[in-house]
Computed example of a mutant assay.
Amino acid sequence: MIETSPPLAAANDVEIRDAACVIVIDYAKPEEPTLLMGRRHADQIFLPDKWVFPGGRVDAADRTFARSFDTSYLPRDLAAELRPFALAGVRELFEEAGLLIGAGATGDLENEHWPAFAAAGYAPAPIHLHPLARAITPPGRVRRYDTWFFTASRAAVANAQSAPDGELLDLDWFTLDAARKLDLPNITRLVLDDVSLRLQSTSEGDFSGADLPFYHEDACGFQRTLISCTLPQPAP
């Protein structure tokens, strides 16, 4: 999740942490797809009371798992440095929304890293996640994240589900127009626009192979540039 509004941090050396968000899209009504969103708690330091997509930090277990995980990603040549982001997105979606994007586990899943998936008998299936955008929180914020946004079809969600962990309130499905009326962070509003553009030009959110928007700030101000998800990434 990305913060693009006050409060400002007291110092400019706030650590940039890696994170991932998943935009689950329900195509039951192709003419009016809906997206899953939830509201953050009012007492949270980062983006209190804002509506966001499920997501969170990439942790050490995600990186360890990515080094040994040999199931396909989309695109299939997704840069190795981005694979932990895809796995983190799958994990965070399961934790925050109770939605499991996985396949039946055929071997011993690394239980110490993904106990909830192991208990359900599934292994994560990042092949169902399509990279959409990257954004880095501007300097001066109380939290800073280098976040990759992915999309996934609701049809990819397995039947095995669990209760959300309570990190997000009021989880619900919204059309693009309804989502834009929510109290959104600026970056979420921009990413919604990216989703809208891609839905107009592709079928069921198959965004593979396209150059992706990268939102960041440099000496010239806030920027939207295009990057590839198959090549080494610019440093934060």
Rank of each mutant, 00 (worst) to 15 (best):
P232M: 04
A86P: 15
G38P: 05
D108W: 15
P6D: 05
V14H: 10
Y122A: 06
L8T: 09
E15H: 10
G166N: 05
V14K: 13
Q223T: 02
R63Y: 08
I127N: 10
V195Y: 02
V22S: 04
A11M: 13
D59I: 10
A125Q: 14
C21V: 11
D108K: 10
A120D: 05
T4Y: 15
L8S: 11
P131W: 14
L74H: 12
A219T: 03
L82V: 03
A152C: 13
K29S: 11
L190W: 06
P213R: 00
P138K: 07
S228E: 00
T188S: 07
R198S: 09
A235H: 12
P185R: 07
D193F: 00
A97H: 00
L78S: 02
P236L: 08
E92V: 15
A158I: 15
A97Y: 03
D70N: 12
G209S: 02
G121Y: 14
L168F: 00
V142N: 09
N111K: 09
L129D: 08
A10L: 14
G166P: 06
D59R: 13
D49Y: 03
T147C: 11
G209L: 03
N12H: 07
A125T: 15
L190N: 04
R141S: 10
L184H: 01
D26A: 03
F222K: 00
A179I: 00
L212Q: 06
S5W: 04
G38H: 05
R39T: 11
A86M: 15
P124I: 13
L99H: 01
N186C: 11
L199G: 01
D13Y: 10
F46C: 12
F94L: 13
P33G: 04
E31S: 14
P6Q: 06
I227L: 06
L168I: 01
A60Y: 09
N186R: 07
L99G: 00
S196E: 07
G102T: 11
G56F: 09
F174L: 03
T147D: 08
A105C: 14
A160W: 13
P234R: 05
H216I: 00
Y73S: 02
K181L: 06
A155C: 12
S201G: 08
P7W: 09
A60N: 07
S162G: 12
P6F: 12
A97M: 03
G140H: 05
A119N: 12
F214E: 04
A97K: 01
A19Q: 02
A179Q: 01
L35G: 02
A28Q: 13
G55K: 01
A210E: 00
D62E: 06
E31L: 03
D165T: 12
E204Q: 04
Y27K: 09
L176D: 05
A120N: 06
R189K: 10
A79F: 15
K181A: 12
G205P: 04
K181R: 06
P124V: 11
F94V: 06
L182A: 14
A178S: 14
A125E: 14
L171I: 01
T230L: 02
L182M: 06
R76M: 12
D77L: 13
D26P: 07
D183F: 03
R180C: 11
K29A: 13
L109S: 01
L129A: 08
R134F: 09
T147W: 08
